[in-house]
Design a protein around this nucleic acid. Sequence first.
DNA 1: CGACGCTGAGACAACGTTGACTGGGCGAGA
DNA 2: TCTCGCCCAGTCAACGTTGTCTCAGCGTCG
Lengths: 351, 351
Amino acid sequence: MTQGEAPPRTPRSRPTMREVAALAGVAIKTVSRVFNGVPTVDPAIVARVREAADKLGYRPNLTASSLRRGDGRTATIGMLVEDAANPFSAALTRTVENVARERGSLVLVGSLDEDPARERELAQALIDRRVDGLVIVPAGRDHSYLISEQRSGTCMVFVDREPSLLDADAVVSDNRQGAITAVDHLLKAGHRRIAYLGDRATISTAAQRFDGYRHALEVAHIAYDDELVHHTGASEEAAIDATRHVLALPDPPTALFTSQNLVTIGAVRALRALGRQHSVAHVGFDDFPLADILSPGISVIAQNIEQVGKTAAEMLFRRLDGDESAATTITVPTRLIERGSGEIRAGGHHD
Amino acid sequence: MTQGEAPPRTPRSRPTMREVAALAGVAIKTVSRVFNGVPTVDPAIVARVREAADKLGYRPNLTASSLRRGDGRTATIGMLVEDAANPFSAALTRTVENVARERGSLVLVGSLDEDPARERELAQALIDRRVDGLVIVPAGRDHSYLISEQRSGTCMVFVDREPSLLDADAVVSDNRQGAITAVDHLLKAGHRRIAYLGDRATISTAAQRFDGYRHALEVAHIAYDDELVHHTGASEEAAIDATRHVLALPDPPTALFTSQNLVTIGAVRALRALGRQHSVAHVGFDDFPLADILSPGISVIAQNIEQVGKTAAEMLFRRLDGDESAATTITVPTRLIERGSGEIRAGGHHD
DNA sequence: CGACGCTGAGACAACGTTGACTGGGCGAGA
DNA sequence: TCTCGCCCAGTCAACGTTGTCTCAGCGTCG
């Protein structure tokens, strides 16, 4: 099998309006009118054009169309998330996609892996493709590079974390209040030594949750103890180590507050490995699948991801529709889900 | 606040090469050369152009570029999955994105929700945006509508399920062999009555897994019993019902083979609700997070999603690079992960 | 019967960019 | 000194589409 044999290996490239027009015996502009649903075309000609288009397998070229069109819209929005594979990002992507679909738009996704350089690169790549707008879960702490894009008319909404050095819309969860709720819940169960295990404090959401933790302790007149606090980064292994470490202290915590998904799961693993899952109370930030099926079930502060994503996408499209009002940050409340682990009382077992 | 106040609300539209050229005092083509890294430009002019571009916040318009360019490539590929939010699709998307990124491409995603009409619509939407290629986890059973697109030069690779009525590349997991392995494993543990709970049999992967189940039983000379088989669809609730139902039979199964993720989780829930999780053996198809942390841990047939996604993306890019060889289907092996639930012996408890 | 308005279709240019070609300046070799 | 060729930047047209304008045909009304 060398190369010669394929006989009807057709033109190799996509048919254009010109070819459809030629086949239908009309002007190219008429084909354009047909595909844009302009009503002032003779039905007989519409039929002829459609037939010719079908025969050729013609599909309009939206990139050419958007280039020529007045508004230059591409009916495509960009979405930058931490990692398309993680459940939080995936759920967010899906809700944004749903809103976009209603508006006839598609979504270009990119994963940042918490790398600010990647954020810049991918944001540029999206802008170079002239997406109509951007939904960003930012990795970096300096978004001034987007100022000129914003001025050039690219709409953008930040999600989960607010923009820095840039004035733009944002939709975030109430991280601080969520953390306060979690810690209050543990305090109510009688705990006085509550450990904090969380992501790196440079990540703004982690910082807010940590702030909530400190605030709740302060209100309860409990002295802050550095030994009970570990900013581990988002990794199960590190969380396992940190959990083991705090539980091995001379005066160990009776309760854990873990402020991020993977940290929560690491803590769950460590507690089970130590056989302490029924004696150490535990509330995690972020819900996760099967949290209810473990024993004890893991109590969590759940974010309303659907509402966050939906709100963000709707904000973006409102901007695209011409809303010029001042940039806002919308805060979406979290809620506590009691499943057992957070209800273990100090100095005793859960029922 | 009516409308008049914003003072330097600049041009509102993006600067073009023309404007950069004007500011730098060169021809538009020279700007083009600079941004394309053509070496035959005086370094002093390069610097002047770059400076002008920076001052204006110029970013090249890739859609215009790809329109004019010979190959018409958009450096964008399309990816259609079942649901961007589910872990399988999300993991797949991410591996494809990784390969695409190396090639300077971005990924447009769309969720099909098992709806063939949506598959068509979204495939068309992607093609209308002139993606360079398509990675599809198909929802429908008739892909002939893609024949003309394929002939027009759009490359496509099917993932997880093979194309029907279309000759195209595919990358799939070895569903049948995986199911055989699962059932064999249960047979080895002494089980003779093994229930099958799975997705609708119209879904090809489900059909293949069911086929593996039947084959393994046949080889073991175990009569097929219709009562032990439920094609529930991919829903936890339905799986819970089906599990309860088979376990309530006069001659109930001693082991379950669940052929899909949500079905597996439903079965897990049902077994726990009945307190039977330590007496009924269980192997699921598809791994899921925290399967190891349950007790017993859930034994599964794990797909190698990363390899599937990577292989598919690489195939696609090989086609884009001009590979014209005949369409192939690549089968990626699965592997059994023993965690406890699948090792429960017939008529007894696991160690 | 002629001017007028309306309907429906084509001609032309332009969106932002790049491929193909042109042309001026300059150094080298005859 | 003249010519040839090279280097570098510019001109022009085109990618596939649509906005704007034009124009032919036809029915209407004074």
